[in-house]
Design a protein around this nucleic acid. Structure first.
Lengths: 242, 242
DNA sequence: CACTATTTTGACGGATCGTCATTTTAAGTC
DNA sequence: GACTTAAAATGACGATCCGTCAAAATAGTG
């Protein structure tokens, strides 16, 4: 009885097609640009069929976000296997994050939309959990490296500081930095010409601030970024499918 | 002929009323929550009258953002007058930023919506300029303090680093941090219990990283935060009108 | 008061989301 | 292949909401 699994596969394929069609529409025109009527006319499926997959527009959007978060997790996992000092491994994650943003430059627009309460509240508990899960696992990877750095003695956290606090710092700076980069229209006016390089250096300043050894004055972490980009993600750079 | 100025005043007052009514609607339900039909029914003005003030919904939303950005600029300006070392003055700005977020917790939701291209593109050039202007002036204040720190010799920027780069770092971390704080639903799950305190400490780590004297190990900048909150903004804490 | 300019009004056109009764397709059985 | 039944697809439709504009109301002026 292969009927069941064939249907499942067809379901899967159709879902992929819907998302494939919806993504450029959303990227182009945001929440309002994703037009359900136009989506049905572009696809070979009717309204009702699409609504069998996604109970509302918001469900499509959150699924678009989940698709790229999945990619990011995979990239973080790959980067976390990089062999080196604990601080080099953090740099490897940084490289992964930067590469992710550059590969999926529209991810932040989607995520920004999703995070708005008005959208978030209309999505299913199931997909929300899924999305949070991908996020938490990314954070978990960073936390693991921080704890590793502490246990190896590369970084000493005082009485009040926790690994989570350091993760929160890195998270804040990357979230804010990439948000500014991808949504701000006038960076050059503000004297910010090479934002990615700047952001990297600022990460290093933060890590220098907690004396995470070896300091950026001793090691050229830009070289680590380059190595990771080449060695770990070299093959990923050619293929840029969503 | 006081007719003209009376009309101007009436116009002003009506605009204020419209925004006053629109704000809670937007905060409650976001872009879709701000319903133009409901807005007219709640106000004593009709559709057409409202559209005499704002050419579209997006114009109302960006004006809501401008209103609070105006408040933030005023707070930054006030904080920048704080007497102390250059690093204490940065801390004073940090206190202002934190107070701003706590006073107008919904600002980031509005700003997040505005920054989405699909909304941004529908707003008038005039109001966009206005909004950018408030933002740039806030950034300018921080830049001024950084340059002051450099000229006083409190912080030494190497060959490659620029004041703008340091500003970008502080900007990224605050933008990201406050965004996470105001829109994330599960901070405690991630071991982040006192996010504002954490963020402050992370600012200090970043500034320690560039060796901005005196370091946070020498001076208790939390005390500066408290002083600024009390001395500079003490009277602001009672009145919490928008 | 009469005439004109300006402002206000709200009904309406157009667009879009999500539903659901109906039709079509597919599966199972003899 | 014919018949029955279950499942899935369809798209017309109701409901909602944005922005417009011709008509009505109001204010200004001599």
């Amino acid at each position: 009885m292969s009927t069941r699994e064939r249907k499942q596969r067809e379901m899967q394929e159709r879902e992929a097609k819907i998302l494939e069609c919806a993504r450029p529409m959303f990227i182009e025109g945001g929440y309002n640009g994703l037009n359900m009527d136009r989506l049905t006319s572009l696809l070979e499926y009717s309204k009702g069929t699409i609504y069998n997959h996604f109970s509302c527009k918001e469900e499509i959007i959150i699924t678009l976000a989940i698709q790229t978060l999945e990619k990011r997790l995979a990239m973080f996992q790959k980067a976390s296997l990089f062999q080196g000092t604990s601080r080099e491994r953090i740099a490897a994650i940084g490289a992964a994050a930067e590469l992710f943003v550059k590969t999926y430059p529209d991810h932040f627009c989607v995520e920004q939309t999703i995070r708005l309460d008005s959208i978030w509240d209309k999505t299913s508990e199931e997909r929300r959990k899924l999305m949070s899960n991908y996020e938490h696992r990314c954070i978990g990877i960073v936390g693991g490296i921080v704890r590793d750095g502490v246990s190896r003695g590369d970084v000493i956290l005082g009485n009040s500081a926790t690994p989570e606090e350091i993760v929160f710092g890195l998270w804040s700076m990357s979230m804010g930095g990439y948000s500014i980069i991808t949504t701000s229209n006038s960076l050059s006016e503000l004297g910010i010409s090479e934002p990615y390089e700047m952001l990297r250096r600022n990460f290093n300043r933060f890590l220098d601030g907690i004396q995470w050894q070896p300091l950026s004055t001793e090691v050229d972490y830009d070289a680590v970024y380059d190595r990771v980009t080449r060695e770990v993600f070299g093959n990923e750079l050619q293929q840029n499918t969503v």
